[in-house]
């Protein structure tokens, strides 16, 4: 990735926080509790984009529990990478769900109407590919309480795949055709063509590896939901249904793609999110309290350590670096 671009993006997104804090820190010594001194006008520290009960916001990674810069944008789910910000906009009385693709200054680039209720959203590391998952009502085959729809947009070519259900699929090496296929939780590889996702069919939840150009997916593992590919492309963080059944909740786990070995993380609470790699050793995810308030936590991408609270009252984390 272009480091100059990274620096510029981080500086721009933190500008609101930075500008306020320079003044604030000088006039109020007590402001040091808020981490003001750790953010300066020359800082290129990375930031974390989150949703604060639906408001697109940015916090400093050096003080994620301190001040947060709020934007006017409302999203049910958001993600960002390399200057592309994606926002699944809530429905209101006048409009259904839609996705907005914005640039780093939150200028609208493209808007696509969608059907369903926002669930997952990913921008590829380059900022080129955007994939979303929505809950949808009314699939006649929906017998387990929900069905989903996952789509992909190539922002470079404009190619739009409304639903991955149109892609050819193979399971156990054989062509697989079933009416009850549902996809969710797309994550992209560095080449912006290969991707991973969950395909649910016949009571199984497969990890599929996809080829966007060839419009096909193949199942490569079972009981893998909401995959998130590490930057080096070697590991997938995901949620694994406990004892293979979602009714029991999900264990945040890491899959080694070379050995296909699964390592449960030290997070033992049920995680229902598509995790985010903060760095090569750490994953972030949202956990919801009983009253619907979310918090962003981190845990090591191994079986070691313990979960740490990263950003209270936030969800949908994305690194803007």
């Amino acid at each position: 990735m272009n480091r100059n671009l990274v620096a510029a993006l981080a500086a721009l997104l933190l500008a609101g926080v930075v500008a306020g804090y320079v003044v604030h820190a000088r006039q109020s010594p007590a402001a040091r509790d808020l981490g003001a001194q750790s953010v300066t006008a020359h800082s290129v520290e990375p930031g974390l984009q989150v949703l604060s009960n639906g408001v697109l916001s940015t916090v400093s990674l050096s003080d994620p529990q301190g001040a947060r810069a709020l934007t006017p944008l409302q999203c049910d789910r958001a993600h960002a990478a390399a200057g592309t910000v994606a926002c699944l906009v809530p429905v209101d009385a006048f409009r259904g769900t839609h996705i907005q693709i914005l640039d780093r200054q939150l200028r609208l680039q493209r808007e696509i109407p969608l059907t369903g209720f926002p669930n997952r959203l990913r921008v590829s590391a380059s900022g080129r590919m955007v994939a979303w998952t929505l809950f949808v009502d009314g699939h006649s085959y929906a017998t387990t309480g929900f069905s989903t729809s996952a789509g992909i947009l190539d922002t470079k070519t404009g190619t739009l795949v409304p639903t991955l259900e149109d892609f050819a699929s193979t399971v156990d090496g054989k062509p697989y055709a079933a009416a009850d296929k549902n996809f969710w939780g797309v994550t992209f590889a560095a080449d912006d063509n290969r991707f991973y996702a969950t395909m649910s069919t016949g009571g199984q939840r497969y990890l599929v590896e996809g080829d966007f150009a060839a419009r096909k997916v193949r199942a490569i593992a079972r009981n893998v939901e909401c995959p998130s590919l590490s930057a080096d492309g070697r590991r997938i963080a995901f949620k694994a249904a406990v004892d293979g059944h979602p009714r029991n909740g999900w264990r945040l786990s890491v899959l080694d793609l070379a050995t296909m070995a699964v390592t449960p993380t030290a997070e033992t609470r049920s995680v229902d999110d598509q995790p985010l790699w903060l760095d090569s050793e750490t994953i972030a995810y949202a956990l919801q309290r009983d009253d619907g308030v979310n918090d962003v936590w981190t845990v090591a991408a191994s079986s070691t350590g313990q979960p740490h609270l990263l950003v209270p009252q936030a969800n949908s984390p994305a690194l803007v670096n």
């Binding site: 804090y21 003044v23 007590a30 808020l34 529990q65 301190g66 947060r68 009252q313």
Partner: peptide, 22 residues
């Protein structure tokens, strides 16, 4: 809220401030 950081939220910070400048 702080009028020198008009778009910033301090909801999860450990402090509450009152002041007339800023």
């Amino acid at each position: 809220v702080d009028n020198s950081s008009t778009g910033t939220n301090f909801g999860t910070s450990g402090q509450l401030g009152v002041d007339n400048s800023e």
